[in-house]
């Protein structure tokens, strides 16, 4: 008799959700997702919260163990009203993806305004204050994440331009001017990721290259199904896909994931690789709470290379 494997290679923490509206000391519309960083021995989530008015804000939540979080009462970021153009983030900021880089952290997030979604960049060393560095993409580009180091002397980012619903990659020498945009991977007709894909977590360095989780969408008659898969990119030529899961690593199955403002959705903006190669994946469930799933680098890598055998 075979060993039971559970429904997904990402195993849900039995204490889920990590953060729900009940844990937040103010009224809100919903909790969408979170990016994550480990700062010294503290876990920090950058949580996207939709306020009652409908605008988006980013709050920091902190934990000593990665499971039990306290969220701050005041937002870390919201509409700035400043910039060269205050319309850029007039409706809020969302989907923070954190990349440790040298001694500090870069946060790529979406600024929302009347003219579209833009990727924007901020820098921080302690997640108590952030320095905004400006909008860095064309409009309606989402799903942005910075690589944790330069490749061939240049900063590199993943992104999801609206056109084509695919993951692309761009380069920059200064984090302000971006170019050399190149297609990385797109939706696969008929698959669980057959309609749109986008980066979920930022790329993380592993022996085989750059590992990241991505979200894939399949449209159904009742709306989209958001699932998570994984891919590995070539270390030197990151637009080359070295491995990609044929099957999802996490699918909406529990009530937390099936019931909420956007049902049938698991959506991540961040994961951590622990020293023992355990992967802690923080994911938004049904746009209504934050959950934790655990797996290992080895399991993901194996699924990237061997999932062709799955059915």
């Amino acid at each position: 008799m075979g060993q039971r494997r559970g429904p997904d290679i990402v195993h849900r923490w039995e204490g889920n959700p990590v953060l729900s509206p009940e844990d937040v000391p103010f009224r809100l519309a919903d909790i969408c997702n979170a990016g994550v960083a480990k700062v010294n021995n503290e876990y920090v989530l950058l949580v996207t919260i939709q306020g009652l008015k409908g605008y988006y804000w980013i709050y920091a939540a902190r934990s000593r163990d990665g499971y039990h979080f306290e969220i701050e009462e005041t937002p870390l970021m919201g509409p700035s009203g400043e910039w060269p153009d205050p319309t850029v983030d007039e409706e809020g900021v969302m989907d923070a993806r954190v990349t440790p880089f040298g001694d500090s952290y870069y946060v790529v997030y979406n600024a929302v305004g009347r003219n579209g979604y833009r990727l924007a960049l901020a820098q921080t060393s302690d997640f108590r204050s952030l320095q905004r560095l400006g909008a860095i993409s064309e409009p309606d580009t989402k799903g942005g994440a910075l690589f944790p180091e330069k490749i061939n002397g240049k900063f590199v980012r993943l992104e999801r331009p609206w056109e084509g619903g695919s993951i692309w990659l761009s380069y920059s020498e200064d984090l302000v001017y971006w170019g050399e945009s190149v297609f990385v991977m797109g939706p696969r007709g008929g698959y669980w990721d057959g309609n749109r894909v986008g980066a979920a977590t930022p790329p993380m360095k592993i022996a085989q290259g750059w590992l990241f989780l991505y979200y894939g969408i399949k449209e159904t008659s009742a709306g989209p199904l958001f699932r998570l898969g994984a891919a590995i990119l070539d270390p030197e030529q990151p637009w080359k896909v070295a491995g990609r899961t044929n099957v999802p690593v996490l699918s909406p199955r529990t009530l937390l994931e099936r019931l909420g403002d956007v049902p049938n959705l698991v959506f991540s903006c961040g994961a951590l690789i622990e020293p023992n190669n355990e992967v802690k994946l923080y994911y938004g469930a049904a746009n209504s709470c934050i959950c934790l799933g655990v797996t290992s680098v080895d399991d993901i890598v194996q699924t990237c290379s061997e999932s062709r055998k799955e059915f």
Partner: peptide, 26 residues
Amino acid sequence: RPFGRGIGSIWISYSKDRIHWGNSRV
């Protein structure tokens, strides 16, 4: 002329080297 929220507007962008572009706005 990118689309933003489905609106076809003229945007302006800048570059130091003609290859990498930024500071785009409507």
